[in-house]
Amino acid sequence: MDVDQENVSATLTVAAPAAKVFAVLADPTTHCAIDGTGWVQRAVDRAPLTEAGQVFRMGMYHPGHPNGNYQVANQVQVIDPPRAISWLTGEEKDDGHLEFGGWFWRYDLAPLGPSETEVTLTYDWSAVPQSIREYLQFPPFGPEHLSHSLHHLAELVSGT
């Protein structure tokens, strides 16, 4: 686990080819099973992630959220199969306008051979404005979250 002032990352070697790992990450319906916090509840948009700018929404739950249940809108920033995928997380306003808080998730995949992939998961909040930092703590989860997520991903791609 590597923690910087503005981001946190974790790396794990996964017993699966990079293309298989990438396919799981590009499928929003798997994100609930991958999530290490238990906050991700379901994929609202179920289409595979295929291009930068694509938006996918997730149903969430957090006991500290004013509504408990809420929805996030994610916008794909990087999609480079089978090497990298990332998205900004934000919300959709009542008028349909998307608003992002300045944090993003990124997975970098490095093939280690035909059946192993080194996966690095990074959560970066370097672009979060001070106005948001006044009421949200970053990162909003413990450091074990990224490791748990990578282990969940490893279990999912290996079928165990």
Rank of each mutant, 00 (worst) to 15 (best):
D2H: 14
V3G: 04
V3H: 09
V3A: 15
E6D: 14
A10Y: 00
T11N: 06
T13Y: 01
A15L: 10
A16H: 05
A16N: 03
A18L: 06
A18V: 11
A18W: 09
K20S: 03
V21P: 00
F22D: 02
A23P: 04
V24C: 10
L25E: 03
L25F: 06
D27E: 15
P28K: 05
T29G: 06
C32P: 00
C32D: 05
A33F: 07
T37Q: 08
G38K: 09
Q41S: 10
Q41Y: 06
D45K: 01
D45Q: 03
A47Q: 15
P48N: 14
L49I: 05
T50D: 08
T50A: 15
T50F: 02
E51W: 03
E51Y: 01
E51S: 15
V55R: 13
R57L: 07
R57Q: 12
M58C: 12
G59Y: 06
H62L: 06
P63A: 01
P63D: 08
P66F: 07
P66L: 10
P66D: 07
N67F: 08
N69C: 06
N69P: 05
Y70G: 12
Q71S: 12
Q77V: 15
V78D: 13
D80C: 05
P81V: 03
P81W: 07
P82H: 08
R83E: 10
R83V: 02
I85S: 04
L88I: 03
E92D: 00
G96P: 05
H97R: 09
L98F: 10
L98R: 07
L98S: 03
F100L: 09
G101A: 14
G102A: 09
G102P: 09
W103A: 03
F104H: 12
W105S: 14
W105A: 10
W105Q: 14
R106N: 10
R106H: 11
R106T: 08
Y107G: 06
Y107H: 08
A110M: 09
P111W: 08
P111N: 11
L112Q: 15
P114L: 06
T117S: 06
V119Q: 04
L121N: 02
L121I: 05
L121K: 04
T122A: 10
T122I: 06
S126Y: 01
A127V: 00
A127Y: 00
V128N: 02
S131T: 02
R133C: 10
E134F: 04
L136E: 11
Q137H: 11
F138S: 01
F138V: 06
F138Y: 11
P139S: 09
P140C: 08
P140K: 10
G142V: 09
H145L: 08
S149N: 07
L153V: 12
A154E: 04
A154G: 07
E155W: 02
E155F: 04
L156W: 01
L156Y: 01
V157P: 01
V157H: 03
G159N: 12
G159D: 09
G159Q: 09
G159L: 10
T160H: 12
T160Q: 11
T160P: 00
